[in-house]
Design a protein around this nucleic acid. Sequence first.
DNA 1: CCACAACCTGACCAACCGGTCAACAAAATT
DNA 2: AATTTTGTTGACCGGTTGGTCAGGTTGTGG
Lengths: 210, 210
Amino acid sequence: MANPERISKRNAIRQENERLILSAAEKVFAEAGFGGATMQLIADMAGLPKANLHYYFPTKEALYREVVRQIFNIWLHAADSFDAAPGPVEGIGAYIDAKMEISRRHPEGSKVWASEVMHGAPVIQDYLETTLRDWTTGRAALIQRWIDEGKMAPVDPRHLLYMLWATTQHYADFGHQIETLNGGKALSDKQWQEAKESVKAVILRGIGAG
Amino acid sequence: MANPERISKRNAIRQENERLILSAAEKVFAEAGFGGATMQLIADMAGLPKANLHYYFPTKEALYREVVRQIFNIWLHAADSFDAAPGPVEGIGAYIDAKMEISRRHPEGSKVWASEVMHGAPVIQDYLETTLRDWTTGRAALIQRWIDEGKMAPVDPRHLLYMLWATTQHYADFGHQIETLNGGKALSDKQWQEAKESVKAVILRGIGAG
DNA sequence: CCACAACCTGACCAACCGGTCAACAAAATT
DNA sequence: AATTTTGTTGACCGGTTGGTCAGGTTGTGG
């Protein structure tokens, strides 16, 4: 009997191919949207025949759903820094850092998520109504606690969260616009640092915690 | 010889049909993206036969381009309030008000623009490089002047503009997510007011002008 | 009332799409 | 070494898409 955990050649092939496909799919979905993306293009980018994609992922939607699921998990992890913080300066500051870093390293993922939500979240509505809603409620309560303890100005916690999401993800979703306004050049390390500091400065001072 | 400015029946028909098509197209492009939108669906929503669409707009891309152009013009107008202002509180405050109002009244347009930019602005790259770049440079200079005059804290003007765009457009682009987190109900008048005030409060205090 | 131009539209088409499948190759199990 | 399971792929299919077009209708200027 085979041990499914063992590093067999089969397992290696499967893992590698799924990785190739998901990586290519993320890029194509981000660039063309769900409707504009084609399985053929994803296959070409992954270096595999199209029929092979349907062996690993039965439908286009199943592949798409898996891409979105991965992104969502990355974002949930980014909030870990939020939790253990003693106050808004550390907590929100670290959260901004983490989300800006994701926008820089995973801009395609952010775009796929944005596209999905903009089109009414046809595929991940359940995530919004369960995991994301719970997450948001929890963090809003934490922010409210900080307000009650006088650690920051009284700002509606939910609208503050929306501001954090909007500003940080903007650098991924609208990266092309920012790049164009930057003379057609991608932001340098220094410019990314400035962006991060600018966002943190305005937000933290804006909530009276700077 | 016909006077082209006269209100003829022909002119009225043309204007009305173009209006119908553009309105339907904006909605469909926003909901499905360029790739996911179909001429047939736009035609059905406009109440016209598909072939009629191609009479007024030769290709899908031409129709799309016109939709984006209209949105862009609305946004440029929103910045008028920015100009005549004596300082950041009035100028930026009014700009936030105007952009939040657009997000509320024209969410479809905002989504189409976001989609276009996210996909690398294949159709409106020239707008970004000319009109938008000039606009941005001008406002950045105005903000810098306010900083030099001591009317606000020294914040990188461009990153501040990005924050303004991000936070205000978020309420349109991610409206579905916000609605879901609001218990599945669209924001009420009062909630929109709170959103506007929250954004203004954090930003204006954040730039040391609140 | 006539002739011309603008407008309208059902029917049609080539191209492309997601998905299927049969035949085959490689690896694992017995 | 035989057999079964898993992975691979070119060829193919029904359905949909953007776009065309011929032939008709309606409005307009002379």
